[in-house]
Design a protein around this nucleic acid. Structure first.
Lengths: 139, 139
DNA sequence: TTGCATCCGGTACCCGGGTACGGGCTTACC
DNA sequence: GGTAAGCCCGTACCCGGGTACCGGATGCAA
């Protein structure tokens, strides 16, 4: 199959295939004599795997790692399960962070604040104007 | 106070002040004869407000709106409370989405999957390889 | 008045995940 | 064998939120 067909079958922009190839997510496919890429049908599966992993919160670099780990498998804990556990921790941290934020938004709604600057000056507002010390739980 | 002092007091890169000014978050300050910016002390408060709003999940454009709404106030529901309620909905949607993802990660960990591609081929894996139909709950 | 820190403006670059464009070549079908 | 669709590669651009670099001008204190 050629690139356009694979892209259509996976619901992906054709340019994205070349992008993923550059990023090491897709192996370099065979070429026709004229230089056009020719993919095996399994490439669609790989694309779906990539999309699923992205959806789970893995970055493209992590997905590349994951695919690489699958190809020539390392020790027991380099596989999907271990990495999923790590990612789960990140996602849970992110959820916890968002729950704090949701609580603060709820408080702000209940307090009926109108002008944030005024809120910051008079200390009645529940929005935490101090201590915004970048407690980022990224990703 | 000059830009460097304000920036230091707010814990922000001096370049960020000019950036915020371009983005309409900070009003254009007075200038010395030589063209250097001179800020009133309240500018630090505005910066802290910006940081707090960002932390609550507002984009810079939304923060600019919020500040603008404070300056010359519109109707009753253009203020912080209404926008916070909207943002709260977004945050809750994002949390719900992340909880789905966390559940899938947990399932993958429990299933002890090793190779994602193999998982995708044999349907035992709980990871949803199909139906990744961009159910994005953005921001 | 001299010296050094700071600020000016404009432009370019960073991250992550793609998408778009342009000129030229292949492939496929009739 | 013609013609159109599809693909090639390289490069530039998009989003959001900044950060870095540059040469030149200013501010402030000794």
């Amino acid at each position: 199959m050629r690139s356009g067909q694979i892209a259509a079958a996976a619901g992906v922009n054709p340019q994205t295939l070349r992008y993923y190839e550059r990023r090491g997510l897709l192996p370099e496919p065979h070429r026709t004599l004229g230089g056009h890429r020719v993919y095996p049908a399994e490439a669609v599966t790989v694309l779906r795997v990539i999309k699923a992993a992205q959806r789970l919160g893995f970055t493209l670099d992590e997905v590349a790692d994951l695919l690489e780990a699958g190809r020539h498998r390392h020790g027991p804990d380099a596989g999907l399960a271990a990495r999923a556990a790590t990612k789960l921790g990140e996602v849970e941290a992110k959820i916890a962070d968002l729950q704090v934020i949701a609580g603060q938004l709820r408080a702000a709604v209940q307090a009926g604040c109108d002008d944030i600057v005024a809120c910051a000056v008079s200390g009645h507002c529940p929005v935490p104007f101090d201590g915004i010390a970048r407690t980022d739980a990224k990703a």
